[in-house]
Amino acid sequence: MNHIKYYSFPETPGAALAGLLNRKTEAMAVAGGTLAAKTLPETVENFVDLKNLPLGYVKKRGGDLVIGATATFDAIDNSKLAKRWAGGVISAAAARCSSQLIRNMATIGGNIARPHSFNIFPAVLLGLDAKVRVLTKTGVKTIPFSALYQPEFRFRPGRDSLILEIIIPGKTRNWACRFEKFAKTEASWEAYLTLFMGIWMKAGVVKELRVAVGALSPRPFRAESAERVLSGAKLAPVSIDAAVLELGRDLDAARAGEFKKEVAVSLFKRFIKERV
């Protein structure tokens, strides 16, 4: 941090982005700062603090749930709206992040800005088909969360763009969901694996199924072959077994290793069996 000359605390996303794009100084945006402050690149000259941006909300818009980028884990954990959405899975996931003191400081935007295996939200957002609104020099782009870490998305949030908000589509509102953080102990910071599972059934038939796996690598992934097996199917021992088998294959493909695979498979099996 010894090159920092400017401390900016803009009040609008536009002003923040202008600071980032100013070619005269190297700038970086920091929200909660729980990770960024200690790992700031040495060359940064302008520390752009996002604390004053009006993005700390959790609200409904249209039929969607919208979470502002600077909403803290604690705010999401305690949001009545989030607690009611998709069985409260977003709040439950927020509660599993590190410690209360981190949850008071860290934001959802910071948690997804860069891929890390210890991030909590990516698996959840991937599983809920979330979209992300990002402010770039060419305007606001709305992209699927799954595109955020793809090379085609050529922006680096916090350096040349800003995450504004996360949109959880209304269709997920009544999904039955579960988030599992499987770690050495209840409150371990790092997990062996995180698992998001979401299901939407109608008349005994699986309409939607999401299985998203995190913590194995910086980017979460969806166990798509397992999802496919059950989509449109009735939950029956045969179809469940087939899905479980596919989940194992998906995890093998991700080089999860035997132990993590077994854990994921049993947690998935339990989740599905509870739906029967």
Binding site: S99, T185, S188, W189, E190
Partner: peptide
């Protein structure tokens, strides 16, 4: 303390 896990109140 992040990676050598001692028990906290939640554990």
């Amino acid at each position: 303390f992040r990676r050598y896990k001692i028990f906290n109140t939640a554990d």
